[in-house]
């Protein structure tokens, strides 16, 4: 029995359900608008060199703490003002989006990949595989997230790859639990039985039969988690454990501004606003996704 002969049994149903869910999502205007905001941030991050008005790392001590353009002393070439080193805040926010979005996507992809592998194995094979994976999951859940990440960053030292790893080491547990639960439920269904009766091996059943049918909740959970990962990255950067200066990241920009809150509110305020906007948009859009694709968990 080849893969091709088995595949069509599940593919058309999944496809039409997907389209129906997508239509459902499109009807939720707030969620669609939020998804567009997220897309806008992604475009901003990708096209940063093209749209940033200034070099994000160019210091100019004559423009030190220059206020936003609409306040006296401001300049429209530096719309959101300048920081303590005279760097353009808007350009740094645009470049900072690259860090937040890259880390958000990288952590979620890595964690979801590992989580799917571990969850499928635990749910399908059960027995000792499930016990071992379950124990690891329990132990990792024993750490408050931020503290675990801080401990790892202290050990590994700062840097982009290290942040991704520090967050992914714990994040995979969440998709893993979802995949395991769904796999346990689906593995007993008739169509899986049928595939097994036709002589399909475990690998075929896990990848071609089970995975396509449990992907919706996994994607929904992953998008919800991305908002959390972005806040965690910003928190690490805020504490000085994230990407190192002079690279612009939103968390470290907010931290830089703390020294100037008495006179220059804009240095901290705008980068924080960027985090809030992106995280809020991801949260609203992912709730819309959940309502459309996985209505079991809707309130």
């Amino acid at each position: 029995m080849t893969d091709a002969a088995l595949a069509p049994t599940s593919a058309p149903a999944a496809d039409s359900l997907f389209r129906r869910n997508l239509r459902e999502f499109r009807r939720n205007r707030l969620a669609v608008a939020s998804a567009l905001v997220v897309l806008l941030f992604v475009v901003m991050a990708v096209a940063a060199p093209l749209i940033a008005p200034q070099d994000p790392n160019a210091t100019d001590l004559f423009r030190r703490l220059q206020p936003p353009a609409w306040i006296e002393g401001g300049d429209w070439a530096f719309p959101l003002g300048c920081d303590g080193l005279g760097r353009d805040i808007l350009s740094r926010i645009i470049y900072g989006a690259r860090i937040s979005i890259f880390i958000g996507i990288a952590v979620i992809l890595l964690a979801t990949g590992v989580g799917i592998l571990a969850g499928l194995a635990a749910g399908y094979f059960r027995g000792w595989v499930d016990v071992v994976i379950g124990r690891i999951v329990d132990i990792l859940l024993g750490f408050p997230y931020l503290i675990f990440a801080i401990g790892l960053m202290a050990m590994m030292g700062p840097g982009l790859v290290n942040i991704v790893l520090a967050l992914a080491y714990k994040e995979w547990v969440i998709p893993c639990r979802v995949v395991r639960g769904e796999t346990l439920a689906v593995r007993e269904l008739e169509y899986v039985e049928a595939a097994r009766a036709l002589g399909a091996g475990p690998r075929h059943i896990m990848w071609r039969e089970i995975l396509p049918n449990i992907l919706s909740p996994v994607i929904v959970v992953s998008t919800i988690r991305m908002a959390n990962v972005i806040i965690l990255e910003a928190s690490l950067s805020f504490l000085g454990l994230g990407v190192q200066p002079p690279t612009a990241s939103w968390g470290s920009m907010v931290s830089d501004g703390r020294a100037f809150i008495l006179e220059s509110w804009w240095v901290s305020t705008f980068p924080g606003l960027a985090i809030l906007l992106l995280v809020l948009a991801i949260n609203v859009a992912s709730q819309g996704l959940r309502d459309a694709f996985d209505p079991r968990f809707s309130e």
């Binding site: 806040i231 910003a234 805020f238 809030l276």
Partner: peptide
């Protein structure tokens, strides 16, 4: 959605 460190500031 509010980052705690920013809300505090």
């Amino acid at each position: 959605s509010l980052p705690g460190f920013w809300f505090g500031i």
